Amino acid sequence: MALKTKNRKKNQLEQRARKLVVHASPKSHVSEQFRTVRTNINFSVPDKDLKTLLFTSSQPGEGKSTASANLAILFAQDGNRVLLVDGDMRKPTVHYTFHMTNTLGLSNVLTRQENPGEVIREAEITPNLHVMTSGPIPPNPAELLGSQTMDQFIEDMTARYDMVIFDAPPVLSVTDAQILANRVDGTIFVINTGETEKESAEKAKELLGSSKARVLGAIMNNFKLGKDHHYYHYYGEGE
């Protein structure tokens, strides 16, 4: 029994390291690509400060949660005070990625059960990075995200942090991402190349446009370059 427990913990740590590649393998090709994404994001809004950023996809399993976590680490390593918020109050994953409990989080703040300061935690893997998990799954995520309490939360957090990054649900699954995208400075759309149907990506982009989201660009996950290049495996499995 002790051996099984030890192996299970080892597998969990290995899975966590694979997702947080910029921390586990900072000199890897994938980490360099994430740094390129960070640079592109910095240059995407030259006329104003980019304070709030959202990551989403058309459907589950495309890599948006892993992308948001790795970019949050990189922005923190760049000297920014960063808050990563799990805005997916339906199928949250951020607490798994950072090996945290999820008893308190965003849902508690939006229902006014807790103050943000009571549920925000420091990420142990790098300075300047703080994390807010989703909290208990509520019966009405969309209503909470569209509330005045959410607007006040964003205003308060942008006053405390240099950047607030939201990991949002997929666009085609629920309306949550559209609601959030309307409230942030920029949205990054993650596409799993070879898996995502063109029609799904176009429909998701259309929905983001209808919500007046400012889409800064797209990340092509699992994109295979030409035969003279290495296979481009952006993050691996995950949401």
Rank of each mutant, 00 (worst) to 15 (best):
A2F: 14
L3N: 07
L3C: 07
L3W: 07
K4R: 15
K6W: 13
R8A: 13
K9I: 14
E14S: 14
Q15G: 03
Q15H: 12
K19W: 04
L20W: 10
V21P: 04
H23V: 11
A24K: 06
S25N: 11
P26G: 00
S28Y: 03
S28H: 12
S28K: 05
H29M: 03
H29D: 13
S31G: 02
E32M: 01
R35F: 09
R35V: 01
F43E: 02
F43M: 02
S44P: 00
S44L: 00
P46I: 00
K48E: 00
D49I: 03
L54C: 12
F55P: 09
T56H: 05
Q59F: 07
P60W: 08
G61E: 02
E62W: 06
S65F: 05
A67I: 08
A69R: 10
N70M: 03
A72V: 04
I73T: 07
F75K: 05
A76I: 12
Q77L: 14
D78I: 03
G79Q: 10
N80L: 14
V82D: 08
L84V: 10
L84T: 09
D86R: 13
M89D: 12
M89E: 05
R90A: 01
T93L: 05
V94D: 02
H95Q: 10
T97G: 03
T101G: 13
N102H: 09
G105C: 13
L106A: 11
L106I: 10
L106G: 10
S107M: 12
V109P: 04
T111F: 04
Q113G: 10
P116T: 11
P116M: 08
P116D: 11
E118H: 14
I120A: 06
I125G: 09
T126D: 11
S134G: 15
G135S: 11
N140W: 12
P141A: 12
G146Q: 03
S147N: 11
M150P: 05
V164S: 01
V164E: 01
I165Y: 01
A168C: 10
V171T: 08
S173F: 14
T175N: 08
A177L: 02
Q178H: 02
I179D: 05
A181G: 15
V184S: 04
D185R: 00
G186W: 03
I188D: 01
F189G: 07
V190C: 06
N192A: 09
T193H: 13
G194E: 12
G194C: 09
E195P: 01
E195Y: 15
T196E: 00
T196P: 07
A201K: 08
K203E: 15
K205C: 06
L207I: 04
L207Y: 07
L208F: 06
S210R: 15
S210P: 00
R214A: 03
G217L: 07
A218T: 15
A218M: 14
I219S: 08
N222E: 14
K224W: 01
D228R: 13
D228L: 12
Y231A: 12
Y232G: 09
H233E: 07
G238Q: 09
